[in-house]
Design a protein around this nucleic acid. Structure first.
Lengths: 224, 224
DNA sequence: TTTATATGATAGTAATACTATTGTTAAGGA
DNA sequence: TCCTTAACAATAGTATTACTATCATATAAA
């Protein structure tokens, strides 16, 4: 299956829709590459402008600031992840299978399809792991949350919690467990690479480690 | 019990030991207040200097940059938390009790003792919740990790994983489970306040929620 | 053809994240 | 006692960041 997937990202995130022009698409594509390369703190609109041969002024016509760009990228990711969850889980009768698929999706790299202006999935993946929490860990969360900009994250969380409830309707914390496995998926991958002594994956560098840890954990928690 | 606790923080974090002078102690104390008040991004050495009636130049003699100050504060916190864990868990024979105490410590506010130049524990607590991951979620993690600056975190993690192994020696992921409950303790508290739909604590605002969630899942995971 | 819109080019500002220099004071050693 | 050193204050200065503003040009829509 190879088709174009697009999501309508909440308009309050941007000033001008980056999907509406070539330069806009270029902004997102190159932002993903640059944030991956430099880290979010060192990423600036000036560097981005140089990269895509335009000016800071132009980029500011699309986004208020770099935080909004990160928010846009993550909104896209959350929407895509929810789409993948829905898509891959449909027609499955076993709720155990559903949960396994979900854990796979959360801990594997995004599928690299061959669309033309596709984002670099490897970079996007690393951004999700290393930078995603910076999007809400800010003094202005409550303020920006008023515009529903975290809705795709909440929707993804709700979708996963449905599968959890299906597997065990008596479990009391389906949403917290969802957000925990989403965040833990990023964290344990980050720790495995950068601070392995915070994991049980030091040394061997088992690429399936996070997957195994979370799956083990999830089913034990949901056991009766 | 009311006594002075001090920890020797890794000297590579600072240029001049802030514990060695009044102004140094003032730097840490006021940094905690200001980072809490402004958030880490808006916190600057200029504002800090104004707050304590000194100059930027003086602060730069103690710390290379504000990231190091945050690292110092969190090192102190991790050391203190490990101390509390060791202290409160000693003499307990039941490993179940030990784990319950640990979860309590991770999800409650730090004890407010009455020492003189004590840090504001409420602010410190919020900093741990909202800012702690910024200390490692940076492109330079591996670089700064070489100086052992995350050792207190790893030690805390190791200490908790000992209690886990004691409770269930066959559990395969004690360290990952430790780091997961530490991080989840912060996350779920943050989400409860700021993005409650990512939790099962929306509306009611149960202050014991995070505690109950983590205790529930910890014992289910460690059950045989 | 007119007109609106998007972009490019350029300039400018306030704040940030530093570095450097110089002078004063106070403590410690000879 | 004098001499030295260290710590800090005061000040200045630089490069970069995070914007905002202005104006000219190209191009696509009316």
């Amino acid at each position: 299956m190879d088709f174009q997937v697009n999501f309508r990202v909440n308009p309050s995130i941007y000033l001008k829709d980056p999907e509406s022009s070539e330069i806009g698409k270029h902004i997102i594509k190159s932002s993903i590459d640059l944030i991956y390369e430099l880290g979010f703190e060192q990423f600036t609109f000036k560097k981005l402008a140089q990269e895509i041969n335009t000016t800071e002024a132009t980029i500011y016509r699309y986004f208020e600031n770099k935080h909004r760009v990160l928010l846009y990228i993550l909104n896209w990711y959350w929407c895509y992840m929810e789409f993948l969850v829905v898509f891959k889980v449909q027609n499955l009768s076993s709720s155990e299978e559903k949960l396994k698929i979900i854990v796979d999706l959360l801990t594997s790299e995004l599928p690299e399809s061959s669309g033309l202006n596709e984002y670099n999935k490897k970079s996007l993946n690393q951004i999700v792991i290393s930078e995603s929490s910076k999007v809400y860990l800010t003094k202005e969360v409550s303020e920006i949350n008023k515009n529903e900009v975290f809705k795709p994250y909440k929707d993804l969380c709700a979708k996963i919690s449905e599968a959890i409830k299906e597997y065990n309707p008596r479990y009391k914390y389906p949403k917290s467990l969802s957000s925990t496995i989403i965040e833990t998926a990023h964290q344990q991958q980050f720790f495995s690479i950068n601070l392995p002594r915070l994991t049980d994956n030091s040394g061997k560098q088992n690429p399936r480690f996070t997957n195994q840890f979370i799956q083990d954990f999830l089913f034990k928690v949901l056991e009766n």
